[in-house]
Amino acid sequence: MTRVYMNRWFSVAYHYINMIRDNPDGEAFEFYGTHPDINHMSLLASDHMGTEPEVFGREYVDFCVNFCRSNEIDIFIPRLHMEEISRYAHLFDEIGTKVMVCRDIELLDAMIEKDKFFEALHGKDLVTIPDYRVATTAEEFKLAYEELTAAGHKVCFKPTKSEGGMGFRIIDNERDPLQDIYGYVTLSTTFEQAYDTFSLTDRFEPIMVMELLEGTEYSIDCVATAEGELLAAIPRRKSTGRTYLLEESPELLDIANRIAASLRIPYAFNIQVKYNNDVPKLLEINPRMSGGLYITCLSGVNMPYLAVQTLQGKTIVPPTPQFGIQAGYVEQPLLMPNK
């Protein structure tokens, strides 16, 4: 029985646990999960659940090490504080726990802070980078906006360090504030509203002010060996609403192969690109399983289990995914144990 620990994951961990548990080889797994909220849905598929303390840095790493030691964990699949866990990966080695994390700390730090990552990719000819500027003051934001609009771009901005759509805004100066009150919650703001807000402080956390990419968005879910040898790459096109298409795109598969060969990212990772004027441009690379990976697994490739196998050091024949699959998702009620 292999014991697996997942710390403070998104709710989709429910799917990934079940995919690993229901693997085609019949390998037995026992799952442990922790989260500050003991009722969080990410814990629902775990066999054992625990509450995490609100600590940071080395204190958080020590919590994870002690949890792995006391529960004799074989495999640790972290999401929260991956960069700190990577810095102290030797502590897990010492207790015999394999950790699914990139050990190239410089690369991992760069992937988590998007401006550093774009700088690191400059000149590598792996994927086109959007036009962008970094701002930490209202005046820097104003200058960045003016330069990008002068170059013919529509403009958006996002914190350099964030997950998903947190902090993402589109600048739209045609918005009607009264209409906004009666409409849906929007990601759009005017330049004046954003500038006035940024002017409330002398300096703020860095944001990337960048060209707005208005074409089709793709997530390319990938699995590689511990040495970064690509085993599988599956582009997932985001369509209308909750609809996705698993698409065999030679252009995107070439991007995945170039990135994998150059950066050598191990285990599960996700490349997000979006088209603008028929050119796929990089949004970010996440060094973990993506939130929509369970949709990608409809290709017939059990990617969470594949990533676990690579961590275990098993010899794997690269799988053949099925493309052309259109899929979506709906909410499903789940019974929770009484606490």
Rank of each mutant, 00 (worst) to 15 (best):
T2C: 00
S11D: 12
A13C: 15
G33L: 05
G33N: 08
H35Q: 06
P36S: 11
M41E: 12
S42Y: 05
A45Q: 05
S46R: 00
D47I: 01
G50M: 13
F56S: 13
R58L: 14
V61E: 12
D62L: 13
C64L: 10
C64R: 02
I75K: 07
L80V: 14
M82C: 09
S86Y: 01
R87L: 09
R87D: 08
L91S: 02
F92P: 06
R103K: 13
I112P: 02
K114R: 14
K116T: 11
F117T: 08
H122K: 15
D125Y: 09
V127Y: 02
R133S: 06
L148V: 03
A150L: 07
G164E: 08
E174T: 14
I181E: 11
Y184Q: 13
S188E: 15
S188L: 01
T189F: 01
S199D: 04
L200Y: 07
M208R: 01
T225V: 01
A232I: 14
R242L: 08
L253D: 12
D254S: 12
I255C: 08
A260F: 04
S262A: 15
P266H: 04
K274E: 10
N276S: 12
L298G: 01
P304S: 08
Q309G: 04
Q312N: 14
T315V: 15
P321T: 01
K339I: 01
